[in-house]
Amino acid sequence: MMSSLLGWFADPNMQWILMGSLLLGIGSGVIGSFTYLRKQSLMGDALAHAALPGICIAFMLMGVKSIGLFMLGSIISGMIATFGIHAITRYSRIKQDAALGIILSVFFGIGVVLMTKIQHSGNGNQSGLDKYMFGQAASMMKSDVYMMGVVSLLLIIVCFILFKEFKLVSFDPGFARGMGMKVGLLEQLLLFMTVVAVVVGIQAVGVVLVAALLITPAVSARYWTDSLGVMVVLAGFIGAFSGVTGTLISGTLSNLPTGPVTVLAATSLFLVSAIFAPNRGLVAKVWRRARTRQQIQQSQSLEMAQQRSRTVEGGLD
């Protein structure tokens, strides 16, 4: 395995792919932080699942595999899904969680039907489309990786430039609007960027699990800090680590899809964060509680001792 790992690093094609996964991880982590703080984590998952029919329809219409085309298809179906979720919550008594569930499963169902149809159509070009389910980073072409890297980089730059605006919109949209910020526009932009992050990650991580790359790094980063800036950077790092680890392991071990491995890498970091993070982590919490208990007991026993000595003195009088 070691030699194959080294072989991987030496292969310029693989260097590209690793670079792409790295940027993808950072981009998803950064966007995911805002998605998480705006309590829209599940939205990312719904958008990812909704992308599948978009990809399939794009392929059926054009008959070629092109990441740009697929991106267009999945962005359109993602937008339709968002619209559907809004419509359901607005015009019925169904709450957002249920609306998300309905849209997610319907779109995914349509996607699977379409994909099966494509696979049975005998189209010679169709091989590899099933990789979109769980992702196969190693199967990416250089142009795909290029696209993925550039788009991720763009996402990171936009987040950097509009950091102040995204922060206020995530924390207090009402106040932001009263202040004259274009809240609607910024929220749409954040949602659009979430769609883009999801879509760009699909080929590497797959529709089923790509949302984890948005959620898990952000949640893990939140454990370590109380500052949004630090959290966003940290989430980017965790995302990058997960992306690279997932790509490496799935590339070296035969036929492991990238998505699940990436998610497992991210989850292991999440576990470390949840247990060992200072202040918010489990260990810190248990330790703090134990220390408080000890202090209280000490002060109580001290008080008792003082009381006793007082009564003894009183007795001597």
């Binding site: 703080l37 309590k39 102040k164 605006e165 922060k167 206020l168 995530s170 924390f171 207090d172 106040f175 932001a176 202040m179 004259g180 910020m181 939140r222 800090t225 109380d226 500052s227 949004l228 630090v230 959290m231």
Partner: peptide, 19 residues
């Protein structure tokens, strides 16, 4: 608002200057 947002008091007050 959600008061568990990762930020401190000074930072929230500074938001008043964003406009």
């Amino acid at each position: 608002v959600d008061w568990d947002f990762p930020t401190n008091a000074l930072d929230v007050v500074m938001m008043g200057r964003y406009g």
